[in-house]
Amino acid sequence: MAKAYDYLFKLLLIGDSGVGKTCVLFRFAEDQYNATFISTIGIDFKIRTIELDGKKIKLQIWDTAGQERFRTITTAYYRGAMGILLVYDITSEKSFDSIRNWIRNIEEHASADVERMLIGNKCDMNDRRQVSKERGEKLAIEYGMKCMETSAKLNENIENAFFTLARDIKAKTEKRLNQNRPGSNSQNGTGSNTKLKPKDNGGSKSSFFKMCTIL
């Protein structure tokens, strides 16, 4: 029987309380926006299946409670995650400062090759901005991840963020599959790893870049 999807990716949303993790997820999974969401206690998740290069990818996205106290609970879910979206609120300096703490958490609890992405949410509220786009980008480069400013309210960059992350994970997964394949494929795989640049196409460039930083 045909499977409903080719890949299942588990993603995780983390970030301070109130930065809009649930809104981002709700926008992506249900294409709806609600200004007054009920606060997330513990953990919750949503599903959306997307299509990338002819492959069906089921995204299982976990939404976590933002309060620091809940980290002891939520970190248990880091391990299974293949991609993590670190969300801050561009109108809150504090939420941006916390990103470093969240990264430390990832380093402690998540698997080493997890894909990460920095999300500056609420970019529709430019008049109340406290964190410039450049600062976000600088931080992202420092940790070797992509960054994006989004607005769940206006549906800006939400799709883009999840699709980009999914594409990176897919590229990495397929690369690993190729590596594990016996024979010439495997040689090709290792070859690409040592030679670094030549075999990469546009789509997986960033992921390739990321691989380098991890290695």
């Binding site: 109130g18 609600n34 007054t36 969401f37 009920i38 606060s39 309060q67």
Partner: peptide, 15 residues
């Protein structure tokens, strides 16, 4: 300091 957090959550309670 979580007093601050309360403000955020009050309106997110049984919206």
């Amino acid at each position: 300091s979580s007093v601050e957090l309360i403000k955020l959550d009050v309106s997110r309670t049984f919206p």
